[in-house]
Amino acid sequence: MNETSFSMSPILTFFLNTGVPFETIKLILMLPIIATFIAFLRQVVGIKAFGIYTPLLITFAFLATNGIKYGIAIFIIIILIGMLMRIALKSFRLLYLPRVAIMLTIVALFILIMLAFSGSLKRTGLASVSIFPILIMITLVEKFIAVQIEKGDRAAIFLASETLVISILGFYLASWEALIHFIIFYPWIILLTIPLNIVLGKWTGLRLNEYLRFGEIIKKS
């Protein structure tokens, strides 16, 4: 990808000239768009996920890992370990924070093993993933356990899958060339997300999934 080939807004040229990396500008401009996208999915479609913060972070972790497949793999491993460890730790009856700490330890160890393993297989793609996106994803464990305790396994897995779906969609949205070109050329359009969110915030219609959920009532009336 050759950055200079973009047609660019003068403000951005100014930023670049002061030494802010292009990638940083791009991600920061993308943030309000992804956030609005998640808000839209919640209010209009009805996809709940783990709030707004987690899917947003995971999306950016995906963007920062080398290719989305490693991101998804790490995500799924974290959730699987979360589930297995819950069963394993059940009989110990531990308090909340120590339990999360143990899970974090196991997840961290596992990822370390995975990195070493993929390195030895000369699959450098995974081994060269920078550590911050991995750390961000590990914090997913806490979210997952909290929901597990409050609402049970099924709800936790359901919300985790929703989070994964949103993050994948968010990833493709943020990697969409046309959109990137557009915000690079018109960076101020991110301000449009504010009125858009005001509309979303006042939206009182049924969510798409509620049409499904209440289908029987609609059929009957």
Binding site: Q43, T204, L206, E210, F214, I218
Partner: peptide, 18 residues
């Protein structure tokens, strides 16, 4: 027709906001 019929249903958005 479907949307019209669903007007009597209370959804999450409306419950919270209204």
């Amino acid at each position: 027709e479907f949307i019209k019929k669903s007007r009597g249903i209370l959804g999450m958005n409306s419950r919270n906001l209204e």
